[in-house]
């Protein structure tokens, strides 16, 4: 592959390696923060979207993308931030959800089979007997929960 398509693929691969500084097991591709990579002439444009309006990690992510692309030999680049469509937890990849759980963060919705009620499953023991301790957790995108079965506190990636 050569030309624009090859450049785009190389740029995407480099940008997709960048991890979220708050959740270092997740890449920005897993998170759905990396929206697109476009090539216009010899310039690469990387398109990202914030999880929350005030996400303080965005600046760090932009910096890391630039560093990753330069390391891949791409010097002509710009980074664009888009707000629409608004980020949703639905964009978390399955791989991302699995990595989150391994990291000890419950990944968004889990449907309880009975009564159709939502339950947040403990990422440690899998129990649905969990309770919310605080609406806002260590970052704006997470809430603080506790498992009533194994007593472990954990972060929950907010569903929205």
């Amino acid at each position: 592959m050569s030309g624009a398509a090859g450049l785009r693929e190389r740029a995407w691969a480099a940008a997709a390696e960048v991890v979220d500084p708050e959740i270092p097991v997740l890449s920005i591709a897993d998170l759905g923060v990396l929206r697109d990579v476009r090539v216009a002439g010899d310039t690469v444009e990387v398109v990202i979207t914030p999880t929350y309006s005030g996400c303080p990690a965005m600046r760090v992510i932009e910096f890391e993308i630039e560093a990753a692309l330069r390391a891949a030999g791409i010097d002509k680049l710009r980074i664009a931030t888009v707000l629409s469509p608004a980020w949703t937890t639905d964009w978390l990849s399955d791989e991302g959800r699995r990595k989150l759980a391994e990291f000890g963060i419950a990944g968004a919705v889990s449907r309880r089979a009975l009564f159709g009620a939502d339950a947040v499953l403990c990422p440690r023991c899998g129990s649905a007997k969990t309770e919310r301790l605080a609406e806002f957790g260590s970052t704006a995108c997470k809430a603080l929960y506790r498992c009533r079965a194994c007593a472990e506190p954990f972060d929950y990636f907010k569903c929205h």
Partner: peptide, 10 residues
């Protein structure tokens, strides 16, 4: 702090 961040981001 998180609500403040959301508002400042907006």
């Amino acid at each position: 702090g998180n609500v403040a961040l959301d508002l400042i981001g907006e």
